[in-house]
């Protein structure tokens, strides 16, 4: 008997698929699975509009949609509280660790992207707008 997946509430972005080509801010091309923390930091340093921020996972709750979770982050030095609802397989990049998701098995199954388990206390790479003056 075949088991079909429930419809996803959010379209899965294609760029997390293993082998996807990612262009860094300096023009260098890398595969998504080869990205390192330094790649994000250096790209953000070059960017005029974006700056990198640390977002610490504070809570992970069940979402309203099937296969969804609500992740509460504490963002930046001001520790602003931000919640995002994503599918369990949605990967985040954890500083010094790499790709992590709430359901790494599903991420690996769907994207062929090796993943660790995203846990409370993990510090994820995120972006904010630089102040425009």
């Amino acid at each position: 008997p075949s088991v079909s997946s429930p419809p996803s509430p959010v379209a899965l972005p294609p760029f997390f698929m293993r082998g996807s080509i990612i262009q860094l801010a300096d023009g260098e091309l890398k595969r998504v699975e080869d990205l390192k923390t330094e790649d994000f930091i250096q790209s953000a340093e070059i960017s005029n509009e974006l700056k990198i921020d640390s977002s610490t996972v504070e809570r992970i709750d069940t979402g309203q949609s099937p296969n969804a979770v609500v992740i509460q982050f504490s963002v930046g030095e001001l520790k602003a509280q931000v919640c995002v609802e994503v599918l369990v397989e949605y990967p985040f990049f954890v500083f010094g660790q790499g790709w992590s998701s709430c359901c790494p098995d599903r991420t690996t199954q769907l994207f062929e992207l090796s993943c660790a388990k995203l846990c409370v206390g993990d510090v994820c790479v995120s972006l904010t707008l630089r102040s425009l003056k």
Partner: peptide
């Protein structure tokens, strides 16, 4: 005619969640 497909290239920032700016007034 079948044109060769170009490999899509994604910008680095598309991989990173964009969270609300935390600047104060």
């Amino acid at each position: 005619n079948v044109e060769p497909r170009s490999v899509p290239v994604f910008p680095w920032h598309s991989l990173v969640p964009f969270l609300a700016p935390t600047q104060s007034d």
